[in-house]
Design a protein around this nucleic acid. Structure first.
Lengths: 243, 243
DNA sequence: CGCCCGCATATGTATAGTCATGAATCGGCA
DNA sequence: TGCCGATTCATGACTATACATATGCGGGCG
């Protein structure tokens, strides 16, 4: 069977098979728990080798759409928890995307040993050396986001000497430190008096607060709290097909 | 080369290769833009066939860790926007996970043709038949979340006759309608007077508002707004290695 | 000097076949 | 009848091979 004979529609053959099976599952034609045809049956149906079907089914497993059990066959997975993929953009990109001019300002900077309060935000050992930064991000000279960040000097020693005058701390870190793990927590909170003053909103006004803790190969790198005025900002996520 | 000779550690050979390359990329040993060895070199290094390496590299492409160009080679991708995977749990699961008793109540229900206001929340044509539901979710008899939902009867005709007495509308829909696309928007908003009354919080208190719009094969299915008292709830996301 | 063609090369896709693994099933034995 | 072991079978993993495709690069020609 030459590949050319079947390669219309959606690129390669196994992609076509993936798309086809996917549509049958997502359309409900094959409900959760349904046993899909065996590899040999599919390879006969599509007129290709078993490896090609196998590759397609492997992708569907990765996508969480099917589960496979030896001897028993392949089954449409029952969706468990829905998942959404949240794009965490660079703050500069967010601001410029809405057509505003971006500017940031480091309003406070300190070097200190980790206090118990710090250790709630970054899981370094007590007394570990940290850089604490408070940054204000502006969109067209209006406060857009207040950032409170701790950086572990053990993980990023060069942060101690960095003036952060060209890049804000977040972008600087992303460009420098590849990270393997991050944990995000999103909440709505009333602005404290200080936050309100910094963000130029009323005290008690709702803020979207994003907390992020980041590790690199198990070692804590940074912990940050971003507070956005609720009226200004929303996070957008798209669906992830994970079942 | 027999598969048995190398299959210790992490399962299959191509999984081991994936994990190995992944760690080199995430550790920074291979920075973004770095050209990784050619398939033939890797297959020689791991003592396996090119197909096995190809499979592993294919996975890394899917994961967004590398980019591949014909003739040129494979390169470590430069991270663009960070991505976080947000698990959207069933509300019942959320409530019971914190050890509380779950209960829900449909407080309003209407069948109507889509109004312009409705069409901001679900992109059906004007006048399309809808079911509008307002649901209150309780944790241990305390209001946990207020849900405002529109369901397109064109997409889910059986929703018209469904009493929603056993399952809340969200869970009922998930069990019934497989969906292909969803869009989430997360914001912090002050509770309106009505929301505050329903949620038993002070008017103006911050709420975490999640809006979700769902399509099935391009057809709008449902639009929902979930309002959580800010003090009660936070969304947690984990990092996704997607660059 | 510059442009274009063609070759070398690395990836992309697909095939056929082999061996391993684990689970369902059937048959035999108690 | 009930249980246990052997068989069978579908998936899982991998190899060797083949051909398609695109592209970077260098040589040749205008």
């Amino acid at each position: 069977m030459k590949p050319q004979e079947t390669e219309r529609a959606a690129g390669s053959l196994h992609q076509r098979i993936v798309a086809d099976l996917e549509s049958r599952i997502l359309s409900g034609q094959w409900p959760p728990g349904h046993r899909i045809p065996f590899e040999v049956e599919l390879s006969a149906a599509y007129g290709c080798s078993r490896m090609t079907v196998n590759k397609a089914l492997g992708r569907l497993v990765d996508a969480g759409l099917i589960e496979r059990r030896r001897k028993a066959g392949s089954f449409v997975a029952r969706p468990r928890s829905q998942a959404a993929v949240l794009d965490i953009h660079d703050i500069r990109a967010e601001v410029t995307a809405r057509g505003a001019a971006y500017r940031f300002e480091i309003v406070a900077r300190a070097r200190r040993a980790a206090t118990p309060a710090d250790r709630l935000r970054i899981d370094v050992p007590a007394g570990a050396p940290l850089i604490a930064l408070r940054t204000l991000h502006y969109a067209d000279d209006r406060p857009f986001c207040s950032e409170d960040r701790l950086i572990s000097l053990a993980a990023v020693p060069e942060a101690g000497a960095e003036p952060f005058d060209a890049l804000p701390p977040g972008a600087w870190l992303v460009a420098r430190v590849p990270w393997t793990q991050a944990e995000h927590s999103i909440a709505a909170r009333a602005a404290t008096k200080e936050q309100a003053a910094r963000l130029d909103i009323a005290p008690g006004a709702p803020c979207l607060v994003v907390e992020r803790r980041t590790w690199r190969a198990g070692e804590p790198v940074t912990g940050v709290e971003l507070a956005y005025p609720g009226a200004l900002h929303r996070l957008v996520a798209r669906f992830a097909p994970t079942g």
